[in-house]
Design a protein around this nucleic acid. Structure first.
Lengths: 135, 135
DNA sequence: CCTCCATTTCGTTATATGGCGAAATATAGC
DNA sequence: GCTATATTTCGCCATATAACGAAATGGAGG
């Protein structure tokens, strides 16, 4: 019961739902999620922690950068089905569509703008290997 | 997006999840749910309101008694799939199993004990037509 | 070692939420 | 009309939660 409640509670916040949807099919770094959600870094970090504790996402550190992606094939059936449910239920949602467009732009703007947004004069995120713009 | 969040938020509480599970395949009256959840009548009423607003359940009044059941075939795909997800994810859950056993007993004890529990010297709930002990 | 940078953790604050009891409302029977 | 009863609504309270900024931590490079 607790694992199911961890999932439902993790999904009970709009920012976390939106984050999960843009994580579909790609790995993103915290800095990209911060840009996307337009929240403070500490807030995004906490949201990611909640999603991770519910096992909805996996995180891996690459140098200074922390990447997150949706739970993969090793995930429990409950997790997999919850993610599938979210995806199906919000496929035609206007917010989700607008988010997808925004995220595409964020991935394009990439390095210079991205980290610079959060702290002036910051060194850009390096390009990662999994997705364009992901460190 | 709001309807999906209404669903996820409704599922983010253990009592509401447990109520949904015992509503599977049966219609129950508030008094039975009060007995089952061991919460105050006002609390159960509020939980049911949340579930109803998320369209996860339907309610209908029968005289003084209010019956609730899971959303039926008219429900949205998101609602249907969320309920199915819950059912599948908690099929073997010990809490859910214990709850099912308890609810079977509550249905058996029926009228005399049920309403009497909540207010001494109360008239028993009349027997309903949909399930044993449901008004 | 240092400085710089990304992220997490911590503490605070405003708001939301789950619980209760009391009051209000709705229904039944006389 | 009345009384009795089931349920909902309201108000209150304790706790949880989402947001923020500051501090702490972890990693990179010199």
């Amino acid at each position: 019961m607790e694992s199911v409640l961890a999932i439902t509670r993790a999904l009970a916040d709009e920012s976390r739902v939106r984050a999960l949807l843009v994580l579909d099919g790609r790995e993103l770094c915290v800095c990209q999620l911060i840009e996307f959600l337009e929240l403070a870094p500490s807030t995004v970090s906490k949201h990611m922690t909640i999603l991770r504790q519910a096992r909805l996402i996996d995180g891996r550190k690459k140098g200074r950068w922390m990447n997150y992606r949706l739970a993969g094939e090793h995930a429990s059936p409950a997790v997999k089905e919850a993610i599938a449910w979210l995806r199906r239920s919000l496929t035609n949602d206007p917010v989700a569509r607008r988010d997808a467009t925004r995220m595409a732009k964020i991935l394009k703007t990439g390095r210079e703008v991205l980290c610079g947004r959060q702290n002036a004069r910051r060194k850009p995120c390096p390009i990662g290997s999994t997705a364009a713009g992901t460190p």
